[in-house]
Write a protein that binds this DNA or RNA. Structure first.
Lengths: 144, 144
DNA sequence: TTAAAAATGCGAATGATTTGCAAATATACC
DNA sequence: GGTATATTTGCAAATCATTCGCATTTTTAA
């Protein structure tokens, strides 16, 4: 493995949350070219050293986020207000997916699950705002 | 609601699978401009009449797919070989998400879950190919 | 060390999605 | 119903993440 790829893998491993390609590039202090970052991330994913998922948010648009695959597979929450990720813990949908596989005859190779909404911090900030302005209402819950 | 938006909603409602914006445009027989299709899909989603999720696949890259929100929220499987969607049935992760909400203090507004791999049809085609060529192996199962 | 293979940097290209603006359509009001 | 106002549509140009071609540099294998 090349120096560049090692460095990028290390960035993913030490990050506490998923990173976009641009986030990774920033953490190399722009010592790697953008194209190289993308190619390295693809490489790491092919090698099973990284996982990724695509997420859309108003602020950042559609971007792909990467996490190191060193620990157990986890799922993430993305705050629509502050745009930070919150760890939702280890994957617990495997059993459901196995049932779906059995029911439909498909062979699942990978899955993507994430949730979006408002994180605890922003929720508190919002409630304070609500008590001041009486404007805050309930967010309807919807799936995707 | 305008004629255009009605037509696009109807396209989503009669589609058996999620559609990309370009898929929707094709089904209007290109009678709507691309920008209008995108704007209408955004409108329908804002109104809660449609849901969407972003999916990456080798063949089509990163695209956003839309489904009508008339029926119960469902989850989808995307075949990496033939690129068709397979219905995985009604959402069954709500209870898990509620637990995650309680554990982390976040407020979930929406979630995305889909799986990718090989559909039953392509699996059979692949097995036939395997019995001829002795090339087909196991796909490692991984999450995202 | 040394040739061949693979990776990197740079700049240009791609492709989905968005935006500005003028024309067309829908809605509100008389 | 008919007109004024607000909203939507079409077209073309712009964005933005991501990818690609190609010359140069780094790795790998012998």
């Amino acid at each position: 493995m090349t120096r560049t790829r090692k460095k990028i893998l290390e960035i993913l491993e030490t990050a506490e949350t998923p990173l976009s390609a641009l986030g990774v590039e920033a953490r190399t202090l722009s010592s790697c070219d953008t194209a190289t970052v993308y190619r390295s991330l693809h490489y790491l994913e092919e090698q099973g050293l990284a996982d990724s998922f695509v997420l859309f948010c108003r602020e950042h648009g559609t971007e792909r986020y990467y996490v190191a695959n060193s620990a157990k597979h986890r799922h993430w929450f993305h705050c629509e207000v502050c745009h930070r990720f919150v760890d939702l813990g280890e994957c617990r949908v495997e059993p459901l997916l196995s049932q779906m596989e059995a029911a439909t005859g498909v062979r699942i190779r990978s899955h993507t699950l994430y949730a979006t909404g408002t994180c605890a911090d922003c929720l508190h900030a919002g409630q304070q705002a609500a008590s001041r302005s009486h404007q805050e209402g309930e967010y309807p819950r919807q799936g995707e």
